[in-house]
């Protein structure tokens, strides 16, 4: 269980987040929504222990993130950052195996590591590409391999920064279903920065809306994701399209 208490985040000249209190429980799926530069990534980094907040604290299972040895924390919280570019010359399988680092001791690759990597590649539909050199893949394929590395890491909380980048519509849905299933069936938690409000409404049960003035609304996705809030969030007129669950917005 991840808990943020009185969390304050700012970058020079801007307060991104003021006194945020949230609790993310096993099995929950959270969306972080906001305009460009509203601090979604900064918040994700603070909640995953990659950034020290200006004040306030984040704890996992009752213990502050900073008190965990790094590798121990990496077995609990995994992060899919936005693509930083990479300097990696090996194969897809070798790449995914690096995700096992927090679980392995010493040099070798254990049978368990190989199994986890193979299973992760199967889950993103890249098993038959395992022997390919990573740099020969397309952007979308690479993104799926990056997701596979995170699956091989097998943390209890997945922190995803724009997990759908480069993915086509079909693979977007597949990726979200995968994480949804990990939450529902294995009791893991998912926190993701998304731009697609439609997907947020369909796959997430909770939402964090980061308004431009540093105000943050958090709570149930079905309550927060409505036309009024989204128009204010994106500062853009929206029109709601009638769908079965009534949660699809397009620019007016």
């Amino acid at each position: 269980m991840l808990r943020a208490q009185k969390l304050n985040l700012s970058v020079p000249g801007k307060t991104l987040c003021r006194d945020l209190d949230i609790v993310i429980k096993p099995g929950e799926c959270w969306a972080i929504l906001g305009r460009n530069g509203s601090g979604k990534t900064t918040l994700l980094h603070a909640l995953s222990g990659l950034r020290v907040p200006e004040s306030g604290g984040v704890s996992w299972a009752g213990k502050p993130l900073a008190d965990y040895p790094r590798r121990d924390l990496a077995r609990q919280i995994g992060v899919l950052p936005q693509d930083e570019g990479h300097e990696f010359w090996g194969t897809v399988l070798e790449y995914v195996l690096l995700g096992r680092y927090p679980h392995s001791r010493g040099f070798g690759v254990s049978g368990e590591d190989e199994e986890a990597a193979a299973s992760a590649l199967r889950q993103v539909g890249m098993a038959d590409m395992a022997g390919r050199t990573l740099i020969t893949l397309s952007g979308g394929e690479r993104q799926r391999v990056r997701i596979a590395m995170l699956l091989a890491q097998s943390p209890q909380l997945y922190c995803l920064d724009e997990p759908l980048q480069h993915l086509d519509l079909g693979h977007q849905a597949e990726a979200l279903r995968l994480f949804r299933r990990l939450a529902a069936e294995e009791g893991r938690a998912v926190l993701m920065v998304l731009h697609e409000t439609l997907w947020a409404g369909r796959f997430c049960d909770h939402a964090l809306l980061l308004y431009d003035n540093g105000e943050i609304a958090s709570g149930s996705a079905s309550e927060l994701l409505n036309g009024e809030n989204l128009e204010r969030l994106y500062q853009c007129g929206l029109r709601e399209l009638p769908t079965e669950d009534g949660r699809c917005w397009v620019p007016a």
């Binding site: 590798r71 924390l73 990496a74 690096l98 995700g99 680092y101 392995s104």
Partner: peptide, 21 residues
């Protein structure tokens, strides 16, 4: 540090999130 060097190639954020100092 061979494994850590491999992971460093993935970028600093990813390396830190995997438990590398």
């Amino acid at each position: 540090q061979a494994k850590s060097l491999d992971i460093l190639g993935l970028g600093e954020l990813k390396a830190r999130s995997l438990g590398i100092a």
